[in-house]
């Protein structure tokens, strides 16, 4: 029982703090942070655990969003079923492209994913314009019906839902990190040959990681779709390809809570700065270069050892820390 609590308390504390954000900041901001951190954790997992960097995350985001949107626009009205379709769509696409992609070296992997994002963008904007309505996007906000128990067509209740989903996602990724499978992932990153000699199959480990990570990304996409009640090709546009990678780096690669910290900082800065300067790219670019040159540990990666020091006696954050240690 104690162990169960130990295992959970890091996550619960993190989400308690996240919940506080809801109190002190406007609702859209809090929701954006939640969805964005789900979006980023897939990229973080791929880069930090399997050593695959993907500049093509928007592709999977768009897949999830459009799967949800197609259902809600053409067939049904229940947003929960829409979300299921989003996850299913993500799963199908990743299972289809995964076997091609995970065979590649990490550098080719990054480039191919980037190409995929561009292709998805064109697909949605031009090729499938008949059903996606091209740049105009699909509007279905008013088509969504209220659902019993938790009415996610209302933003305030959507927040609670997204919060629970994020909590579940984090618990899932923490479980992955702690499992043998998580160790195998890390091992493929560090030395795939040795793992092969131990009798593990690199291909299937990577494929599973790829499917898990990008289905999570698709989930974030469908959350966006339900939240906004609108999708457009813009979400997979190439100018946004860097976002998840930037936030992953910003938060701290391979750390469990990096995506949350990164999302808060990134979304916060974006809101603050784009209001003032209007030239957002300039800042992201230089921020990215700066973090890389400064030691690439990211905010959480830097904070974590400090917190560990501060709380080492009390052990309050014992669970917050363990996740990061394995990432190195």
């Amino acid at each position: 029982m104690m162990n169960v609590f130990r295992w959970w308390r890091g996550i619960l504390l993190a989400f308690f703090l996240l919940g506080l954000i809801r109190v002190f900041s406007p609702l859209p901001f809090a929701i954006e942070i939640l969805i964005f951190s789900i979006y980023v954790i897939g990229c973080n997992f791929l880069l930090g655990r399997v050593g695959f960097i993907s500049f093509g995350q928007p592709a999977y985001l768009a897949v999830g969003a459009y799967s949800t949107a197609f259902y809600l626009f053409y067939f049904g009205t229940n947003p929960y079923i829409g979300l299921l379709f989003g996850i299913l769509g993500g799963l199908v696409v990743t299972v289809l492209v995964g076997p091609f992609f995970v065979r590649l070296r990490s550098d080719y992997f990054a480039l191919v994913n980037l190409a995929l994002a561009v292709i998805v963008f064109y697909l949605m904007e031009k090729v499938l314009a008949g059903i996606t309505h091209g740049d105009n996007g699909l509007w279905f906000l008013t088509r969504m019906t209220s659902t019993p128990v938790l009415d996610i067509s209302k933003p305030s209740e959507f927040f609670i839902f997204a919060f629970l989903v994020a909590l579940a996602v984090w618990a899932f990724y923490k479980y992955l990190d702690d499992s043998v499978y998580g160790a195998c992932c890390l091992a493929t990153k560090i030395n795939e040959d040795k793992l092969k000699f131990l009798g593990y199959d690199n291909f299937s480990i990577r494929l599973l990681a790829f499917v898990i990570a990008n289905t999570t990304t698709a989930l974030a996409g469908s959350l966006y779709a339900v939240y906004f009640g609108f999708v457009s090709p813009e979400m997979s546009s190439h100018s946004r390809c860097a976002d998840p990678v930037v936030v992953t780096i910003l938060g701290g690669v391979g750390t469990l809570y990096g995506p949350i910290v990164g999302s808060i900082v990134y979304t916060g800065m974006k809101d603050l700065i784009s209001g003032v300067v209007g030239n957002w790219e300039l800042l992201i670019g230089f921020l990215l270069v700066f973090i890389m040159l400064a030691g690439e540990k990211g905010i959480w990666g830097t904070l974590e050892p400090l917190l560990k020091k501060a709380f080492s006696r009390k052990g309050v954050l014992a669970n917050l820390q363990d996740s990061g240690e394995k990432g190195r």
Binding site: A242, V246, V289
Partner: peptide, 10 residues
Amino acid sequence: MITSFGILIG
């Protein structure tokens, strides 16, 4: 690669 992407965006 990440750094170069930062340079590109910046």
